[in-house]
């Protein structure tokens, strides 16, 4: 437990090391998630449009 606390303290620089990694994680993961969600919504929208057009053409 002590070694873990010791490690997390980062030699007294915990307040700078961990926020750096935290923000980098938020940035990297955030961009990935946002990009994937936009892709998914657009895929769904495109499918809907295609189906609607096929339906509209037949009527």
């Amino acid at each position: 437990m002590d070694t873990l606390m010791n490690y997390l303290a980062m030699g007294g620089y915990a307040a700078w090391v961990w926020p750096s990694y935290g923000l980098a994680t938020i940035g990297v993961v955030g961009v990935l998630l946002v990009s994937r969600r936009t892709l998914k919504t657009r895929e769904r929208e495109f499918e809907m449009l295609k189906n609607a057009r096929r339906g509209g053409g037949q009527s």
Partner: peptide, 12 residues
Amino acid sequence: LRLRSELLAAKI
């Protein structure tokens, strides 16, 4: 991923 997304936006 983002390129696929941009292309889809153009198609839409």
